[in-house]
């Protein structure tokens, strides 16, 4: 079991920040919120470094903190009924689908629960497997699988509904 000094804990947090930022951006889909979440997570991890220093994998431990922080932020945003669209992050040129599909997806993702949003982001943003998602979020693999399934069903239904509306308009 690794036992890190304060200097080593600080080094892990700083080195992992860039990756944590990408992770937070996928989950929160907003640059400002992602920055705040990573900052908050890093400070929380630093304050809890007596736990972190004993972790088998301190970097993975910090990722879990980031995911938890993002999930809490999604809950807060959801309660305020304000989830900003990720225009600051989305590069339209790289996006192969139509603008409408992207809008539909954004809105459909916003309607998912915070737990489902996290899992969708980890699966399709981070390309993690179900076991990896379960490990990172601290839930059972079966729970991760069912949440992913449920979230996908919601997204498919939302996209299908939008498509029907488009077809009627045309």
């Amino acid at each position: 079991m690794a036992t890190l000094t304060d200097d080593e804990v600080a080094q892990v947090l700083v080195v992992q920040t860039a990756d944590a930022y990408r992770l937070a951006a996928w989950i929160l889909r907003d640059a400002g919120c992602a920055e705040d979440a990573v900052q908050e997570a890093a400070m929380a991890a630093w304050d809890a470094r007596n736990k972190m220093r004993y972790a088998d994998d301190p970097a993975a431990w910090f990722k879990k903190v980031v995911v938890n922080t993002c999930r809490d932020e999604l809950r807060r945003l959801g309660r305020r009924q304000r989830i900003p669209l990720p225009r600051t992050l989305v590069d339209a040129g790289r996006f192969e689908r139509s603008f409408c599909v992207r809008e539909e997806l954004e809105q459909a993702i916003e309607r998912l629960t915070s737990e489902e949003q996290v899992i969708i982001a980890l699966r399709y943003g981070r390309d993690l497997t179900i076991p990896q998602i379960a490990l990172l979020t601290g839930i059972a693999q079966g729970t991760a699988k069912s949440r992913l399934h449920h979230a996908l069903e919601h997204l498919r239904a939302a996209l299908a509904a939008e498509r029907r509306i488009e077809e009627r308009v045309q």
């Binding site: 920040t17 930022y21 889909r29 920055e35 992050l89 997204l155």
Partner: peptide, 16 residues
Amino acid sequence: IRDYYRSITPTDASRV
């Protein structure tokens, strides 16, 4: 969905 997430490109992380 995958394309959507891959289009999310965070800005420079060095400042963070």
